[in-house]
Computed example of a mutant assay.
Amino acid sequence: MQKELRLKKREDFKKVYTYGRSVSNRELVLYMMDQPKAEPYRFGISVSKKVGNAVIRNRVKRLIKEAIRSLLLKYEIKKKKDYIIIARIPAAQMDLPHFERSLKHLFKKMKIIETND
């Protein structure tokens, strides 16, 4: 993911957690907050130590990033927003297609993307 599309600072994460809206499913939680300065949007990923050891957490982060890339190619998402994706414990057992389905479900639930299927 490109540098300008990432949320990295703790203060940015705290703002989104405090002022943003959230939706969740069994595997992931999605926070979204309006950010007029964000060009065009920014994503943050959080994976707790509860999910697994460092190898598993890094694998989960890589799969989430790849699922985001895949969805960005297929759908137009809302601009000027900050998004944070939090992995829950079942995410450690998931593969890429499952991450894509789960993220797509959250995006539709939050009305970030419009789909006919």
Rank of each mutant, 00 (worst) to 15 (best):
S70L: 13
S70D: 11
S70T: 13
S70Y: 09
L71S: 01
L71H: 01
L71I: 12
L71Q: 03
L71C: 06
L71Y: 06
L72A: 00
L72C: 03
L72I: 12
L72W: 03
L73E: 14
L73R: 06
L73Y: 08
L73F: 10
L73W: 04
Y75G: 02
Y75L: 04
Y75Q: 09
Y75M: 03
E76H: 06
E76C: 02
E76A: 02
E76V: 11
I77P: 02
I77Q: 01
I77L: 13
I77W: 12
I77R: 00
I77T: 09
I77Y: 02
K78W: 10
K78H: 12
K79Q: 15
K79E: 15
K79S: 10
K79I: 15
K79G: 07
K80I: 09
K80V: 09
K80C: 07
K80M: 04
K80N: 08
K81L: 08
K81F: 11
K81S: 02
D82T: 05
D82G: 01
D82Q: 04
D82R: 02
D82W: 14
D82S: 12
Y83H: 04
Y83G: 02
Y83T: 09
Y83E: 11
I84K: 00
I84E: 08
I84Y: 04
I84D: 10
I84T: 05
I85K: 00
I85W: 04
I85H: 00
I85F: 02
I85G: 00
I86M: 08
I86C: 04
I86Q: 06
I86N: 01
A87C: 07
A87F: 14
A87W: 11
A87H: 07
R88N: 05
R88T: 06
R88M: 04
R88D: 08
R88A: 04
I89G: 00
I89C: 01
I89D: 10
I89K: 11
P90T: 04
P90M: 06
P90V: 09
A91Y: 07
A91K: 00
A92F: 09
A92K: 10
A92G: 02
Q93F: 15
Q93A: 14
Q93G: 14
Q93K: 14
M94I: 14
M94H: 01
M94F: 11
M94G: 00
D95V: 15
D95S: 12
D95M: 11
D95A: 03
D95W: 03
D95H: 11
D95N: 14
L96C: 07
L96V: 07
L96R: 06
L96Q: 11
L96Y: 05
L96W: 07
P97I: 08
P97G: 01
P97K: 02
P97M: 05
P97A: 01
P97Q: 02
P97V: 12
P97Y: 08
H98N: 12
H98S: 13
H98F: 12
H98E: 15
H98Y: 15
H98M: 13
H98P: 01
F99P: 13
F99I: 12
F99W: 06
F99K: 01
F99L: 06
E100P: 08
E100Y: 05
R101N: 10
S102W: 05
S102T: 07
S102H: 02
L103H: 01
L103V: 08
L103I: 06
L103W: 12
L103M: 07
L103T: 03
